[in-house]
Amino acid sequence: MATVKFKYKGEEKEVDISKIKKVWRVGKMISFTYDEGGGKTGRGAVSEKDAPKELLQMLEKQ
């Protein structure tokens, strides 16, 4: 499965596409929420050019 690499609050993070719950576009950025486990929801964003094609496909399906 594909992963998304991004920075959040200065920390490098990587999340599996299957854990992503919601995806939306903000200008040229793709924002998303994902399941961190333990009932927590994380947030992240990547630029449109750095987003994996699976993430862009999720955006188109909504």
Rank of each mutant, 00 (worst) to 15 (best):
Pro52Ile: 14
Pro52Lys: 03
Leu59Gly: 02
Asp16Pro: 04
Gly38Asn: 09
Leu56Phe: 04
Lys40Phe: 14
Tyr34Cys: 02
Ile17Val: 07
Ile20Asn: 00
Tyr34Met: 02
Val23Lys: 01
Asp35Gly: 09
Arg25Leu: 14
Arg43Ala: 10
Lys7Cys: 14
Met58Trp: 06
Lys5Pro: 01
Gln62Thr: 04
Gly38Thr: 09
Val23Ala: 11
Gly10Gln: 03
Glu48Gly: 05
Ala45Gln: 12
Lys49Phe: 09
Ala2Arg: 05
Ser47Asp: 10
Val4Gln: 00
Ser47Val: 05
Val46Cys: 06
Ile30His: 01
Ala51Gly: 12
Lys9Asn: 15
Asp16Trp: 08
Ala2Glu: 14
Glu11Phe: 05
Ile30Asp: 00
Ala2Ile: 07
Val46Thr: 13
Lys49Arg: 13
Glu12Asn: 07
Glu48Trp: 05
Met29Thr: 11
Phe6Asn: 01
Ser31Cys: 04
Lys13Arg: 06
Gly38Pro: 13
Glu11Asn: 12
Glu36Thr: 11
Gly39Met: 07
Ile30Gly: 00
Glu60His: 05
Phe6Tyr: 07
Lys13Asn: 03
Asp35Arg: 03
Val46His: 03
Lys49Cys: 13
Leu56Lys: 10
Val4Ser: 00
Ile30Met: 05
Val26Pro: 06
Lys19Glu: 13
Gly42Tyr: 08
Arg25Ile: 08
Gly38Tyr: 10
Ala45Thr: 05
Tyr8Pro: 01
Ile20Val: 09
Glu60Arg: 03
Lys5Leu: 08
Met1Ser: 14
Lys19Leu: 13
Gly42Glu: 15
Leu56Thr: 06
Lys40Val: 14
Phe32Val: 06
Lys49Ala: 07
Thr3Met: 05
Phe6Trp: 09
Gln57Ala: 09
Lys5Asp: 01
Lys22Tyr: 09
Ala45Asn: 10
Leu59Lys: 01
Lys5Met: 03
Asp35Ser: 12
Lys19Asn: 13
Lys61Arg: 05
Gln57Ser: 06
Leu55His: 00
Met29Pro: 03
Gly27Arg: 05
Lys9Gly: 15
Phe6Leu: 02
Lys13Cys: 11
Glu54Ser: 08
Phe6Thr: 01
Gly10Cys: 15
Arg25Phe: 09
Met58Phe: 06
Lys28Met: 07
Lys28Gln: 10
Lys5Glu: 02
Lys7Trp: 14
Val15His: 01
Asp50Thr: 08
Gly42Lys: 06
Lys53Val: 10
Glu48Phe: 03
Ser18Asn: 12
Thr33Arg: 08
Ala51Lys: 01
Ile17Cys: 06
Thr41Tyr: 13
Phe32Cys: 06
Arg43Glu: 15
Lys21Val: 14
Lys22Glu: 15
Ala51Met: 03
Lys22Thr: 13
Thr41Val: 10
Lys22Pro: 01
Trp24Ile: 05
Glu60Gly: 01
Val4Gly: 00
Pro52Glu: 04
Gly38Lys: 14
Met1Tyr: 12
Ser31Asn: 15
Thr3Trp: 03
Lys40Cys: 12
Asp16Ser: 08
Gly42Asn: 09
Glu60Met: 05
Glu12Met: 12
Ser31Gly: 04
Gly44Lys: 01
Lys28Asn: 10
Glu11Tyr: 13
Asp50Ala: 13
Met1Ala: 08
Val4Tyr: 00
Lys7Tyr: 13
Glu11Asp: 04
Glu12Ser: 07
Val26Ile: 04
Lys22Gly: 13
